[in-house]
Every structure is written in structure tokens, then in C-alpha cells.
Design a protein around this nucleic acid. Sequence first.
DNA 1: TATTGTTATACTCTATAACTATA
DNA 2: TATAGTTATAGAGTATAACAATA
Lengths: 153, 153
Amino acid sequence: MADDVLLFDRLLEVAVLLQQDMDRSLTGIGLTTARTHLLWELNRLGPSTQQALATTLGVSPRNVTGLVDALERHGYVDRQPHPSDRRAVLVVLTDDGSRTIAQMQQDRRAVELALVDGLDEIELGHLTHGLDKVIACLHDLMGEAGPPAGGTR
Amino acid sequence: MADDVLLFDRLLEVAVLLQQDMDRSLTGIGLTTARTHLLWELNRLGPSTQQALATTLGVSPRNVTGLVDALERHGYVDRQPHPSDRRAVLVVLTDDGSRTIAQMQQDRRAVELALVDGLDEIELGHLTHGLDKVIACLHDLMGEAGPPAGGTR
DNA sequence: TATTGTTATACTCTATAACTATA
DNA sequence: TATAGTTATAGAGTATAACAATA
């Protein structure tokens, strides 16, 4: 009957569970998904202007202002004057921010270990292979349908 | 180096892509993720009180009021008096709402087909098997860590 | 007394537009 | 003139608390 989206449903369930798992560790410490995303990218990029963060995150500069305000208020980042451009500010991780990111990376590794632990090497290979195909296929689907005036055909 | 969360990263990428794919079809027709979620559950449950919807969706009754307001405003649902409880209202899909849901189900089937099309039967079996293990593992992780005063041990 | 839905209030994420200070 | 970041304004999702009508 409704069994015609078996793979889709499984992927969706994984997505929901991952989201829940990541949300769980953010409660009560002044972090949210959006703020954490910024923190994560800031850690990847190193000290950055808000403009750079807006581009990387794909959100408006105004939005970054709000997120940095909140992260600064909670002590995760600092705003420093840009050394060569007095219009800009450099957003940098505080020690607390760095520690928080490190903890998150450790949590991810723990989840990864738990997941891999339940699979033998063959199963893991098959799963990885299948996921890569799914990812490629979804990228294709997005590419085709993205902007109204496409031309991949 | 940073290659120690390979599986996690793949699952995360799938989650992001799925979210993007689902968002894509909602733009410009008065729908959002939250509203669509309500519509979807309403279709599954049949005519429901807002209380029932709040419970099913795991959000506050106040939140449901806002979502139903918006969906009603855009013609996807109607509020009808509850036949036996004059405090409650029954939220029901309009014809337009039903058509929209049907279209979404069809879109899902199309994505499912595209995904399955890229895999032979063996690969599909392996992928499904791996995902089921991942889902079970994630459920375990959530269960263990969920409420502070757990007792699964 | 308990429940259904609402109004009141507040916080967060998001966007666009106008404005300031600087390039 | 263009760019970086801010203030102003607005819409959407979410929550709690207080309140009205009804069970």
C-alpha cells in the first residue's frame, strides 16, 4: 500500500534522528542549531569577517549580526577590530568556544564509533557505497530542478 | 586527520540534501516545513482536534493554533465545529489540501524511484540493511541519553 | 476540577531595505 | 562608488502563562 517509499522513509528517519541527536547537546548552554553552525564554520575558517561568515553559511549579513551577538553574549566568540579594514570586524573563537567545538567533535566521533561498532567491515563498505550513490543521485535531482531556468538538458 | 567521522558525515549530507529537496517544493505557495508537517499528519490521522495535532507533532497547542491559522488562510484546511465537544474544533483538509498532499506523495515516489534506479537489487538490499542498523543504533543512543532520570539500566 | 483553544508575551531564525562608516 | 556592519521592520516557528468556554 504505502510501501513504495521504503528507502526514502529510512533516509528521512535517519535525518530526523541525527537532528535530534545534535539538538540534544545544545540545550541550556546558549547554543542553537544556527549558532552552532556558525561556530563550526568559524572553527573551520579561522578568524573571519561577518561578511565571510554570511557567505559561507548562505544567510544574510544581518542574520550573522544576530548570531554573533548571541554567541558573544554567551562567551563563545569575540569581536576584534580588523587589522587592515576599519569597516570590518574579525570574529574569533574564545577559549570557551574552542573547548565547546572540541567537545562536539568528540561527541561526533563517539556517535561514529557507536554506529560503526554495530556493523562488520563488509556491511560498512556496502552502506558507505550505497550512501555515496544516494548522495550523488540527490545532487543530480537538486541540480536539475534548482533554478526555474535550468538547462541541464 | 579529520577522516574519523566518515559515516556520520555521509548521513549528515543525506539529511541536508533531503531537507533541501523537500523545501524546494514549498516555496511560494504559502507552505513551510512546519505547516507541511501538520498537513501530512492531518492527512494520516483524518479530521483532528488541535489538541490531537499538538500531541502528534510534539509541539504546544498554541503553536498549532498559529499553524492552523496560516493553513486556513491559504485554503489548505478548514476549522469545523466538533460534533460532540463544543470546546474543540475539528481541523479538516480542504480539497486543495488533499490535492497538495497527493502531489507531495507523488513527488516522494518520484525521488524514491530515482534513488532505487541507481542501485541494483543487491545494493539496495545492503543499503536498506545498513540503514536499519543505523536507525536502531541511533534509537539506542537517544534512549540512553534522553531524559536525565532514565532507567534503561 | 480538567480540558480545548485562545490571547498575551517573549525568544529565535530569517529576510529586505535604509543608513553609517570606511574603502 | 562599493563594501562591512548596523538599525528598522517584518514574518515565521517555538515556548510558557493566563484566561474563557465547556466537559
